[in-house]
Structure formats: structure tokens, C-alpha cells
């Protein structure tokens, strides 16, 4: 019996990076997964990787939070009661203030904040989850320390963490816990893409992240702890997983 045998766990943004490693781990531990991806490539990757495993795989556009209710309801049936929800969707943005027009800011906030709140609202409906449900969203050190160009991204992550603090105070009565995991630099596809766009190969963040570049497995290990019963006393918090960056 795996640790998460027959537990229903939803992972949004599951086709890449942290979400994908978490899905692989939970699959090995016996969980029944509901996996989300935004793109067709993502859906194909998930379908190939988890063929014949019985997991649900669905596509939804997080940049359009109004579409999520329908996308979610068409996937989920009454027998599924969630035990965990990990939100790994994170739209990155790097733009100087001069180019930060409202349409761009809205796009980032829709994908990273409004859609997460909407998914929580949908997941926490009556009879949709088991007591003990653990919700975790991936945040970033950008929410806590500023950098030039990351204004919109940092704003979206800080907003998510604030929403988590409020939701935890409302949802504890339903035995739901909500936390955010504040990640430093992690070796993902998004990270390599970002480094390619930079003029210099040196990552200044890593100079302060003294445990070095994180792996998706590092983050997954902490997520598994936060999903499990061992963390039943932790809620409403922003937990750093940053290789020492914020210290």
C-alpha cells in the first residue's frame, strides 16, 4: 500500500516542472490523480506518461478563469472526493514598468490568482472533498523580495499568499487546510527558458540561494509532506522552500 493509496489528488499545471514530478511521485504512491494541463502538448505528454493508469486528465485555460467552472464540472463526478489539491500553474513575466500595460498585468493576475481562487471555490463545494483536504499553491520568493522587471509576477504571487491566509481562516471549519510554498530558483523548463532570455549566464539569485539550484524532487518532497497527515497542524502559512534565499 502506498502512502496515498486511493487518495484523490488534483494537480493543476501537471505537465511540466514541479507539477509533473509531483504527479510521478503520487502515481508511485498509489494516488488517484486528476491532472490538468493548459496546452495540447501538455495533455499529450500526460496521456503518454500515464497511459492505462486510470488517472483523469483534463485541459483548461487558466488565463480565462471564467471558463474553469464548466471545464471542471465536465470532468468531475459525484464519486470523486478530493483529498489534496496542488496548484502548480504559474505564468512568468519579465517586463520593465514602461511596458507593463493593464492587459499584460491582467493576464498574469488572471492565470496566477483569479484562477487559483476559482479552483478553490469549485473544489471546496459541498460533497466535493473529504475532511482533511490539503490545498497547496506554489508561490515564489519574488512575492517577498523585489526585483526589476518582475512587478506583475511578484504582485500575483503575493496576492495568492494573502488569499491563502484568508481562505485558511474560513475553511478550517470544513477541515480544509491551505498553505503556500514559497519556492526559490528550481531547475524547471520555465527556469531554463528564463535563463536563455538573459544576457548573462550568471543567476544573481543563486548567489543568495546558498543551497544551490533546487530540483523539482526537492520541492515535491515538501509537497508530499504538506499533502499528508503529518502536516495536519500547518495552515494559512507561507512556507519557504528557497535554499536559504530569504534568510
Amino acid at each position: 500500500m502506498g502512502k496515498f493509496e486511493n487518495k484523490y489528488i488534483l494537480i493543476t499545471g501537471a505537465s511540466k516542472g514541479i507539477g509533473f514530478t509531483l504527479a510521478e511521485n503520487l502515481d508511485n504512491l498509489g494516488a488517484k490523480l486528476i491532472l490538468h494541463a493548459s496546452s495540447e502538448d501538455g495533455i499529450n505528454k500526460l496521456t503518454e506518461s500515464f497511459a492505462n493508469k486510470g488517472h483523469l486528465i483534463f485541459r483548461a485555460d487558466f488565463s480565462d478563469p471564467l471558463s474553469l467552472e464548466e471545464a471542471w464540472q465536465s470532468q468531475i463526478n459525484q464519486d470523486i472526493k478530493l483529498d489534496g489539491f496542488v496548484n502548480c500553474v504559474g505564468l512568468r513575466s519579465r517586463r520593465p514598468l514602461n511596458l507593463l500595460k493593464p492587459a499584460h498585468v491582467m493576464n498574469i493576475l488572471h492565470a496566477n490568482v483569479a484562477s487559483f481562487i476559482e479552483m478553490c471555490r469549485l473544489v471546496c463545494r459541498k460533497n466535493g472533498f473529504n475532511p482533511g483536504l490539503s490545498i497547496i499553491t506554489i508561490s515564489s520568493i519574488a512575492a517577498h523580495s523585489g526585483g526589476p522587471g518582475v512587478t506583475a509576477y511578484a504582485a500575483s504571487k503575493a496576492a495568492t499568499e494573502a488569499a491563502v491566509r484568508c481562505m485558511s481562516k474560513e475553511l478550517f471549519k470544513k477541515e480544509v487546510r491551505v498553505n503556500s510554498l514559497v519556492c526559490g530558483q528550481v531547475n524547471t523548463e520555465a527556469y531554463s527558458d528564463l535563463m536563455e532570455t538573459k544576457a548573462s549566464a550568471d543567476d544573481v539569485i543563486l548567489e543568495r540561494q546558498y543551497l544551490g539550484l533546487g530540483s523539482t524532487q526537492n520541492i515535491t518532497d515538501i509537497l508530499l509532506f504538506l499533502l499528508g497527515k503529518e502536516s495536519c497542524f500547518i495552515t494559512g502559512s507561507s512556507i519557504p522552500a528557497d535554499g536559504g534565499y530569504l534568510s
Binding site: A158, A159, A163
Partner: peptide, 27 residues
């Protein structure tokens, strides 16, 4: 920085504002 029941959207918007300020200040 302080969570209150039913202030999810308001808190999120103010935290976003505070974080945006740090990015702008650096730039």
C-alpha cells in the same frame, strides 16, 4: 499580511500592490 475571513479578494489585491511596489522600487 493578516488574513481575515471573507476578505480573500481584498487581501490578495493589497498584497499584490505591496509586492508590485518592491519590483518598481528596484527598477
Amino acid at each position: 499580511i493578516k488574513g481575515l475571513k471573507s476578505k480573500i479578494a481584498y487581501s490578495a489585491s493589497k498584497a499584490a500592490l505591496d509586492a508590485a511596489i518592491r519590483g518598481m522600487a528596484a527598477e
